[in-house]
Nucleic acid binder design. Structure first.
Lengths: 136, 136
DNA sequence: TTTTAATTGCAACTGATTCGCAACTACATC
DNA sequence: GATGTAGTTGCGAATCAGTTGCAATTAAAA
């Protein structure tokens, strides 16, 4: 559960039960979730939804900038989180796949330089992997 | 084509035609390649190979530490490169998917801090995205 | 209340990757 | 050089996360 997120319903999206459910699950989670986890949480709360609908809702939310999609561990994990939680990076335990939020960002004050072209940078992704307390 | 890579044949792997082909294609490329690109390049050179074999060879090479597998753009791209080219990161053009090598690393001299756990860091991945010269 | 475009339920599909297994081959041994 | 055999590959079938098509449903504008 997280409070203090100021989330406005994205313009142009109808307020449907499926979308409310997905948004609510994301709000209540303190970590990014996979589509399957979101699906199971919604079912667990006694609602009915289809996994394909979860994907479609997440796509729509991502397009509206409400949600960020992140893949970790070379595609083993694809996770979704509210953008309102702010710019952040994650560390993944290679053993148990626990996700730990990083509280700083290496790209702050860093200027990438390139070899054969000059890239106009619009974003970046940082992923740290290692062992969590329980797994080492 | 790249010279100066000191690559020794990994211990415990038989020297087969399929593996020689894959290794040679990786050596000759100046950028990371997808399994499909490697497959097509081998076919283009007049050899025969199966895509599943390419995957198996790449897996074996990765396990032996000869090759590094990297996924970019949330799984849109999965690429393989020789580890001998050294520690490096890539920038991807979100438009044309051109891959540009970064010549520096933001994680050098950076100490990540974590929120709910202490991760023993064993590695990291950095991905920069933006627009290349041709696409902006 | 009516209208209608957006959304969902549902099932079938896709594309990248993996798997199973028989046939083959590199290479150690005779 | 011939032989044995564990490791490898050819080949196709299977898998699996995610996507798509379409008819039925629904939010919300009129």
């Amino acid at each position: 559960m997280r409070d203090g997120l100021n989330i406005k319903w994205p313009e142009g999206l109808k307020r449907t039960k499926a979308r409310e459910c997905v948004l609510s699950v994301l709000k209540d989670s303190n970590r990014p979730l996979s589509a399957m986890e979101i699906f199971e949480e919604i079912e667990g709360r006694g609602h009915t939804i289809w996994l394909s609908t979860v994907y479609r809702v997440l796509d729509a939310f991502e397009e509206k900038g409400l949600v960020i999609k992140t893949s970790l561990l070379n595609n083993e994990l694809t996770l979704y989180d509210l953008k309102a939680t702010g710019h952040r990076h994650y560390a993944v335990c290679v053993e148990c796949h626990k996700i730990v939020t990083m509280t700083n960002c290496p790209m702050k004050d860093f200027k990438p330089s390139f070899k054969d072209d000059e890239i106009e940078v619009i974003g970046h992704k940082v992923e740290v992997y290692g062992y969590c307390k329980d797994c080492r």
